[in-house]
């Protein structure tokens, strides 16, 4: 018989509630993916929403934060631009992980959009003063 792996398997769950006992420990993920009940459709939307938050929301957050970084880093102009671009993918990756790790899709969007709005406002202010 197939020996089932004790631990580090790559799970492909999260979309559809499982019936079997094996999926028991994964079931709370299913709950985490959804904020509106546990219907399969609701869950699908919650997952889709998170994926969008990760791809688009986190990208916008990254673009804005590196723009701010480029202006505030204490180096010559060319160097701060370069450094902020170098860091951009790290910021993006961390934001993506956070989107999937946080409790709900709403929180995920909030975590992306709120700081983005703040930074956009800051950049707008800087632009008008300049």
């Amino acid at each position: 018989m197939q020996v089932y792996d004790e631990g580090n398997e790559v799970s492909d769950t999260g979309l559809v509630p499982r019936k079997s006992g094996q999926a028991q420990r994964k079931s709370d993920l299913a709950a985490r993916k959804s904020t509106s009940g546990t219907s399969a459709t609701g869950m699908r939307w919650a997952v889709f929403s998170r994926v969008m938050a990760a791809i688009i929301g986190a990208y916008v957050l990254t673009l804005l934060s590196i723009a701010v970084l480029a202006l505030v880093l204490p180096m010559s102009r060319a160097e701060s631009v370069l450094l902020s671009m170098l860091l951009s993918f790290l910021i993006y990756a961390c934001a993506v992980l956070w989107v999937f790790a946080t409790r709900s899709a709403w929180r995920a969007w909030g975590g992306m959009l709120l700081p983005s709005l703040l930074m956009a406002a800051g950049l707008g202010l800087w632009w008008s003063v300049k």
Partner: peptide, 16 residues
């Protein structure tokens, strides 16, 4: 990083 000028353009936009 090699193509970051394409993917992450905002620093150059605000500074240059």
């Amino acid at each position: 990083m090699l193509l970051m000028y394409l993917y992450m353009p905002t620093p150059i936009v605000v500074a240059y």
